[in-house]
Amino acid sequence: MDRIPILKLGDALLVTIQVDMHDRLAMALEEDLTAKIAATHARGVLIDISALEIVDSFIGRMLDNIAAVSRVLDAETVVVGMRPAVAITLVELGLSLAGVKTALNVERGMTLIEDRIHADAVDRGDLDDRPDE
């Protein structure tokens, strides 16, 4: 069976969903991601759904689950690139994905994750609160 590839990008994992999501494929992704977060100690997960033409309650639930599981494993999940028509439909369907962070594109999503890693570092006292570039 096909699996969706998971890429490692620094402290984050990137998943780009490019196929029409099959239920079994969604469940496999959930398992794979959980395993990979634990194995790599990733601090963030970016799920790019800009190619998805629909998100139904099943895929919505998968996104919610991934976010919840990754939170337990101390990683932040950001869903990026949801299309307007998909967003309108999801709201009408009654799904708010309240536990999931969102961003317009991969770049912005990455910034969110980096900000979080940076804030944690400041909390620990590893860095002062001035970001250095």
Binding site: V79, V80, G81, M82, R83, P84, V86, A87, I88, L90, V91, E92, S96, L97, T102, A103, L104, N105, R108, G109
Partner: peptide, 12 residues
């Protein structure tokens, strides 16, 4: 409210 919710899902 729906508009606001949909915008949030898109990341805005």
């Amino acid at each position: 409210l729906k508009t606001v919710a949909a915008a949030r899902l898109m990341g805005a």
